[in-house]
Simulated assay, not measured.
Amino acid sequence: MDFSKLFSNKQSSKVVAKDRLKLILIHDRANISPELLENMREDILQVISKYVVIDDSEVEVRLTHTQEVEGSSPALVASIPIKYMK
C-alpha cells in the first residue's frame, strides 16, 4: 500500500484541473478579464498601503462565487498579509 498519497498535502491533478475550470467559468460569468482583475488588485493594494505595510509576495486576489437565495453571485476574495500598521 502506498501511504505517500494518503499523507501528501499535494492536490491531485484532477482536483487542480477542476478548480481551474471553476475559476475560468466564474470569470466568464462575471465578465471580468484577467487584466481587469489585476487592475483591481493593484488599486486595492494601493489604498490599503496607505494604512498598513503589506507583504506583496503573499497577496492573493481571486474571483469566486457565493451562494445567494436566488443562486450564486460572483465575489472578489482577497488575502492580504499585513506586516504592521503605519
Rank of each mutant, 00 (worst) to 15 (best):
L37A: 06
M85S: 14
E42M: 12
A30V: 09
A78I: 04
N31K: 14
S8K: 07
N9W: 07
L25V: 12
S49T: 09
K18G: 02
D55Y: 12
Q11L: 08
R29A: 04
V47T: 08
S79P: 04
E60R: 06
N39F: 04
D19P: 07
V52A: 01
K10G: 04
I82R: 05
I24E: 10
S57R: 04
A17D: 01
L23M: 03
M40A: 07
N9Y: 05
R20T: 06
N9Q: 01
L76T: 03
P81W: 15
N39Q: 08
L21A: 09
I44S: 05
T64K: 13
K86T: 02
K22M: 02
S13I: 15
S13T: 15
L63D: 00
T66Q: 13
L23R: 00
I48C: 13
L6V: 14
E58I: 12
L45Y: 01
L25W: 05
I80T: 09
Y51I: 14
Q46T: 14
R29Y: 06
T64F: 12
L45H: 03
S12W: 02
P81E: 08
M85D: 15
S72F: 13
S72I: 15
Q11P: 15
I32T: 05
G71H: 13
A17F: 00
F7H: 06
S8C: 06
S57K: 08
P74W: 04
A78P: 06
Q46W: 15
D55H: 13
